[in-house]
Structure formats: structure tokens, C-alpha cells
Simulated scan of single mutants.
Amino acid sequence: MGCKLLKIGQISDIHIGEDENLVQGIDVRANFLKALRSKSIEDMDLLVLSGDLANEDGEPGAYRFVFEQVKDLKVPVLVIPGNHDRLDTMAQFFDLQGKIHGEKCYFKYEIAGQTLFFLDSACGTVSKDQLDWLKAEAAKVQGEIFLFMHHPPCLCGHRFMDSRYSLKNKEEVQAVFAEIQNLTHIFCGHYHSHFELDMGRQKVHVAPSTQMQIDSYAPNFILKSSAPEWMAIEIGENFVETAVYLR
């Protein structure tokens, strides 16, 4: 029997502040709500918030606001930390029971016949414990597996982010990923730009940000747009499709 179509909404890098004040002159709360309340998210089976929920350093008000907006959704909501999040504070608002191991948040999630894995790259690396766990757990799955993490596991051609904020141990991570034969698609954020890249036989999908988009051609930080963007993912039997939406 084939797997049913799985629809996932991915919202990344929302950078909510402690209160309603603008963040870098942007109403990030309104931007997040534009994505969350869009028709493109309405019929999803799962919503993933892929890191940097908080703006700077895990502001409690950020998690409180996000939780209040998503708590009544009729679909599961999964969160992973980004480099601006604090896991201990995030865990006060979101159900991370069984997902935190030591000081890292990583876990497996099964839905609609598909197996999704989530890794923690908040400190700028993916720990060896996580990579060993991923290899062992992936080997137990007969079909394809799909992975979410905050940082892209490779360079993306984004001059500013590649040179300053790329994953620090990307070579180690790539080597492990290459060994996992059933890992086919990797979904991430962090770069405030949309990319789709081939990394060997794996495809990397980088979601844009609801906070703002950064000019990928400039060597220094240049704001490209303060309009929110987000991604929708469809996974079916023998296909994966993504679409980016903006307001």
C-alpha cells in the first residue's frame, strides 16, 4: 500500500521579540501571522517551525506569543531550535518531552506512513551523538527518510551567510549523510533566502524567512525584502515537491 500524500508547512526564522516592538524596523509578529493564517498553510497535515523562533537570545515573550498562536491548530506543530533560541526556555512553552537528550533536541516523528527526523544545530554544529543516533535509527527504516535541521548542511551560494554563519562541521555532517542511503531530502532554514541544491544524491531545501530576506549576492548584510516568505512541502509516493509563498 502506498503512502498517502503528506503536506507540511515549514515556517522558519520568524525572530519574534520579547514584546510587540518592531524588530529591525519590521513587524515580525504580523509577518508570522500572515504565514500562519495563509490559505497555503490551512490544509497542511503538519507544521514545522524550523528554528530562530526568538529574535536574539531565547526571549520568553517570543515563545509565549508563538505558542499562543499555534496551540489551537488542528494539526501537530513541531519545533526545533535555531542559533537564536534557548532550548531550556523553549521547553517551557512547547512539548519537547522525550525530544531533549542532554542539551540537544533531536527526535524521530512518523506521520502518514513517512518517517521524519529532526536534528539540533543551534550551536552551529551537529553533535556526534546526533549523527550516530541518526545513522542507527535511519537503518531501521525500510523506505525513504526526510530530515529537518536549522542550518543547511552545505554551502548555498549565499555570499554573506556562507562566509559568516554556515554550519561549522558541515564536512563531517555531509560524510555521515552520504552513508545514509535512504536519506533523500533535507529541509532547513537559517539563511533568510530560498535555495534548492543537490548534495550528492540528496536534495537540500532551504526555506526563506518570515522576518526578512537577505540579499544572497552581497558579501555584506543587505536587506532584500521585509516581506514574509514560507515554504510548503508535499511528499508522496516517489516524489517531493516544494513551493514558496510570500506576502
Rank of each mutant, 00 (worst) to 15 (best):
S121Y: 08
K108M: 12
K34L: 14
N31F: 02
C3P: 13
L36H: 04
V28D: 02
L87S: 14
E42C: 09
M90Y: 07
H84A: 14
A35P: 01
G82Q: 09
A30E: 03
Q97M: 06
F107D: 07
D43K: 07
A35H: 03
D52M: 03
N21C: 05
V75M: 15
R37P: 07
M1K: 07
R37A: 02
H101I: 04
H15G: 01
P60L: 04
G61L: 05
I11Q: 02
G82F: 04
D57K: 14
V70K: 06
V28R: 00
L119K: 13
K74L: 03
H101C: 04
G9D: 15
H15W: 09
F32L: 06
A30D: 01
M1V: 14
K34Q: 09
L87H: 15
F93Q: 04
V48Y: 11
G17L: 08
K71M: 10
K99S: 09
D95N: 15
Y63S: 13
E110G: 09
A30M: 06
L47D: 04
E68I: 00
Q92A: 15
G17V: 02
E68F: 00
T89K: 12
S40M: 11
T89P: 00
L116E: 14
M44C: 15
L49F: 13
D43A: 09
R86W: 03
I8S: 01
C3I: 15
D45Q: 12
P60E: 08
Q114F: 15
K104L: 00
G124E: 08
T89N: 09
